[in-house]
Design a protein around this nucleic acid. Structure first.
Length: 306
RNA sequence: CGCGGGGUGUAGCAAUAGGUUAGCUUUUCGGGCUCAUAACCCGAAGGUUGGAGGUUCGAGCCCUUCCCCCGCAA
């Protein structure tokens, strides 16, 4: 089939590359306008844009696809549009423009976790499994009828970043499979159960603030869910400290947030045990191992994370 | 020209108002103690203090410029 691919972040790149390698033809790529900037303020291209250009595929970046994308999309001969974390909502006009409409690769087991950061929220909420769902896009947010899905367990200490890396490959594989069946009309779309649908919002910086008055399991999930973006952190002696990998440990470590140094390990107390901090990062510094941190910094007895 | 922090032996940090042998922890090697050890004791190795200029009697520290890293903001 002739495919127009719409996607933006790294997650979508895997699907795009799989499409390019498949027998299908990617006739055009649409991505969000470049927004990311480096420290000098230079705009950085989106990952999908980079991948498309490397393969010599025409890239379009519409400020608002529902208005300025219409004419161009119409003019491109294609059978279907595929979206993967594109970032803009499509109008009915666009949804019905091509023969097979629009299908979307979504990183959750719909109808749960519709919306922006499904992988992260699944980890934060302590889910034990998640997956990929491919569905026919309709006018709602991730509400269209489901075409296919695949499940995967979430590792005890798996971060959202690691899980994303796995899911994007699973999504790419499932996409190719689904496209194959779809082109032969061998798929029956299953409507989502609206009653059990849940929606999640985008993550913001503050979502990364670890609350040590909570239980260890919650804290570890929270930390894993916001890693690597937007990043977990806590405040130590007035300075924000980014926190990398953590593990939960049992035992009583005193007041929530209090930091104990045991040998060359660093453990922060929480409601029902302790959180072992394996990596941390000070402003202006690189991420370092806790034992390295302890070599250069003497913590006083009252040291605690807030 | 968005704001800001930083580049010191393997790693993490120090170094009073510029001053003499650049310190500490860790690591490595040698030796000792021990039933044993990631513990402890003794000793040793290892730095052109990111690069290049400049000011000075004297620069890790001050000035100029370049390279690299990072936090915030987007």
């Amino acid at each position: 089939m002739k495919v127009i691919f719409l996607g933006t972040p790294d997650f979508a790149v895997a699907s795009l590359k799989a499409l390019i390698k498949s027998k299908h033809e990617v006739v055009a790529v649409v991505s969000q306008p470049d927004r990311a900037k480096d420290r000098k303020g230079n705009l950085l291209p989106t990952p999908v844009k980079v991948a498309a250009q490397e393969n010599g595929i025409e890239v379009y970046q519409f400020e608002k696809i529902r208005t300025d994308g219409i004419e161009i999309l119409k003019s491109i001969d294609a059978d279907i549009m595929v979206t993967a974390a594109y970032g803009q909502i499509l109008s009915r006009e666009i949804l019905e423009m091509k023969r097979f409409g629009v299908i979307n690769v979504h990183a959750s087991l719909l109808p749960k976790y519709r919306g922006s950061a499904p992988i992260q929220w699944a980890v934060i909420n302590g889910e034990t499994e998640t997956g990929i769902t491919i569905m026919q896009t309709d006018v709602g947010v991730d509400s269209g009828a489901m075409l296919s899905s695949v499940k995967t367990p979430i590792g005890e200490n798996e971060t959202a970043g690691e899980l994303t890396d796995r899911l994007k490959e699973m999504g790419a594989d499932l996409l190719i499979e689904t496209l194959e069946l779809l082109s032969k009309n061998k798929i029956i779309a299953v409507p989502q159960d609206e009653m059990s649908a849940t929606k999640c919002r985008m993550l913001e910086k503050a979502d990364g603030h670890l609350d040590f008055t909570r239980n260890k399991r919650e804290i570890v999930c929270r930390c894993n869910g916001v890693t690597p973006f937007p990043g977990a952190y806590a405040v130590l002696d007035g300075t924000p400290v980014k926190i990398g990998k953590v593990l939960s440990v049992s035992g009583n470590y005193g007041k929530c947030g209090k930091i104990s140094v045991v040998g060359n390990e660093m453990i922060a107390a929480c409601a029902d045990g302790g959180i072992k901090i394996l990596q941390l990062q000070l402003p202006g510094k690189n991420m370092m191992l806790a034992k390295d941190f302890l070599r250069g910094h003497r913590l006083n007895d009252g040291a605690e994370f807030v």
